[in-house]
């Protein structure tokens, strides 16, 4: 081995060691933060301490923020794993009743310790998305879904995509800020069909 090769290898080793120690530091900090959180929260109503435990998506995505974009291979791993977890309706029908979907899109209740767990949860889509023209009180964390079906086409493929997206948003966009409504049991199959109808039914005010 000549000196140049040796120097190159030494440099590579140093970089790797640097990366490893950076990673160790960060996971150390996370472990410490988790320990801290476990002693800083108390169970309340339906919100037990296990809400603090992260699954793979949550653990991975917590590392990427600000300028640190999710690396392509990491994103692909998450999207593939989450896509495999989607359960599509056995009857092959993706569209429910858009009127009920509108109510679900409006409702912000569900899963907070102050909520009654016996009541169905809402989707609170309006918190983050523009949907109908009539509702001007909408948020902007997510993109506008106005005319969603009209723009994307009222096709069975698009219906299936919308169902899958609401069921498990991470299957299509790793580390999305959108909750995984079906995967996490926030909305039932029928409720998801209803909000998909809100997006995809030609009669729905989203498309009118």
């Amino acid at each position: 081995m000549n000196t140049a090769q040796f120097a190159a290898i030494a440099a590579a080793v140093a970089v790797l060691a640097g990366c490893a120690s950076m990673f160790a530091e960060r996971s150390d900090l996370t472990a410490q933060a988790v320990t801290m959180m476990k002693t800083s929260f108390k169970e309340q109503g339906q919100a037990k301490l296990d809400r603090i435990d992260q699954d793979d998506v949550q653990r991975t995505c917590s590392q990427y923020h600000g300028d640190a974009a999710v690396p392509r291979d990491v994103a692909e791993r998450i999207e593939k794993a989450e896509a495999a977890r989607i359960s599509y309706p056995a009857d092959g029908k993706y569209l429910g009743d858009w009127k009920s979907g509108e109510k679900i899109a409006q409702a912000g209740v569900g899963m907070q310790y102050s909520d009654d767990p016996a009541q169905p949860s809402g989707g609170n889509c309006y918190a983050c998305h523009e949907l109908t023209q009539a509702e001007v009180s909408y948020g902007t964390i997510g993109p506008s879904l106005r005319n969603f079906g009209k723009v994307r086409g009222f096709t069975p493929e698009m219906q299936k995509y919308a169902y899958g997206k609401v069921f498990n948003s991470e299957a299509f966009f790793a580390c999305s800020n959108m909750p995984r409504f079906g995967q996490k049991g926030i909305l039932t199959e029928q409720q998801i069909k209803d909000v998909v109808a809100l997006l995809m039914d030609p009669q729905s005010p989203v498309n009118r």
Binding site: A47, R51, V57, Q58, H65, M111, P179
Partner: peptide
């Protein structure tokens, strides 16, 4: 903790 995602809604 600020960047820590978890719970039912991620």
């Amino acid at each position: 903790i600020f960047f820590y995602r978890g719970g039912t809604h991620d």
